[in-house]
């Protein structure tokens, strides 16, 4: 039995379902991320776990306890809101102590717990600050502290870094990861930022149009996406149409048009296939190499990215340019491209 268990949960407002028959199991102590474009239903799912929305169907349980009929204020979860929802009429200390007051702790203990939490999020000495006097990063820390001080079983984070600027966001990613390790609480974060998801999470669930497409570790997600949508959403990919020719014990041979006949490892084909089936081959820009021989093309545009450059290569017989990432500029605009078969992933066409 996993720690957070979501079974067949659906939710619709007016119109089509926002969350559509979602199953999700999150083990205890993980940093788990829900990744998807805006409007994919990830925030609604998070709000159903917190109790702010009620599922139309399905069950949500935490630590073996069904949550459906439990109001938000009695759930063992706490949330970091997207815009932090810092109470403007309270100072930092009182914001963090907000959720402890009801427990009627002795004054000294209350103070000790809040001070300890202030130290954990590195806001020592700022307890007396007014909510209006905080920077974006500080507001984020207060929101974290306010939730964590209640020692929830599950911490929910709704785009916690989206309101911060780029540099602060990167610094906070590292801190957030370290904080999760330190407190050992299960974190469930919602984000639309793939870099954030990949760098923070133990596991990522990719959502689109209310459904979960794939649940995997960041590396797995990047290297072996299970469908075109995931491959497209996470990083960049080039796609080629192909038809299955033959199938062996551990390999699949396909006719891939411009790429000729290629043989893929069976583990790299993400769906069940039979001879004659259509497939979509995906390959990342950094896995394509410039070579002396191979598919001929011409560089149409180059974008300098610092460490690498990104090239758009026009190829006869294909409308989209092939995107190639490389450390060096090739000597001439006329190039030949090599597609190492071990980097080609076979995806279902739909």
């Amino acid at each position: 039995m996993s720690f957070l268990s979501i079974k067949a949960v659906s939710k619709a407002f007016a119109g089509p379902p926002v969350v559509d028959n979602v199953d999700l199991e999150v083990p205890q102590g993980q940093f788990f991320t829900l990744l998807g474009p805006s409007g994919c239903g990830k925030t609604t799912l998070l709000r159903m776990i917190a109790g702010f929305e009620t599922p139309d169907r399905g069950t949500i349980s935490i630590d073996g306890e069904a949550m459906n009929d439990i109001p938000p204020h009695l759930r063992p979860t706490n949330m970091v809101f997207q815009n932090y929802a810092i109470f403007p009429h309270l100072n930092v200390f009182d914001n963090i102590a907000y959720g402890l007051r009801k427990q009627r702790l002795p004054k000294a203990e209350l103070r000790a717990r809040v001070e300890a939490m202030l130290a954990t999020v590195r806001l020592e000495g700022l307890g007396g600050r007014g909510a209006g006097q905080l920077s974006g990063g500080q507001r984020q820390r207060v929101a974290l502290a306010r939730a964590l001080v209640r020692r929830p079983k599950l911490l929910l984070l709704d785009e916690p870094l989206a309101a911060l600027d780029k540099r602060l966001r990167e610094a906070m990613q590292i801190e957030l990861r370290a904080l999760q390790r330190q407190v050992g609480i299960t974190f469930l974060m919602v984000t639309h930022d793939q870099d954030e998801a990949l760098s923070l999470a133990d596991q990522v669930a990719v959502m689109s149009s209310g459904r979960i497409l794939q649940i995997a570790s960041p590396r797995e997600l990047y290297e072996r996406p299970n469908c075109r949508e995931v491959a497209d959403f996470i990083g960049q990919n080039n796609f080629f149409h192909a038809t299955v020719k033959t199938i062996d014990a551990d390999s699949v041979t396909v006719n891939a048009g411009l790429l000729g006949v290629v043989t893929l490892a069976k583990a790299n084909v993400m769906c069940a296939v039979a001879p004659g089936d259509r497939l979509l081959l995906a390959i990342r820009p950094e896995d394509i190499a410039f070579d002396d021989a191979g598919l001929a093309g011409e560089i149409a545009a180059a974008t300098f990215l610092g460490e690498t450059s990104l090239f758009q290569v026009r190829v006869a017989g294909r409308s989209d340019p092939v995107i190639v990432s490389n450390y060096f500029d090739p000597p001439s605009k006329a190039v030949h491209l090599k597609f190492p078969p071990q980097f080609l992933i076979g995806l279902p066409e739909h």
Binding site: F13, R47, G51, F52, E53, T54, P71, P72, H73
Partner: peptide, 9 residues
Amino acid sequence: MAEKGRNQG
């Protein structure tokens, strides 16, 4: 009650 969702009640 306040704890109900935005579209309820």
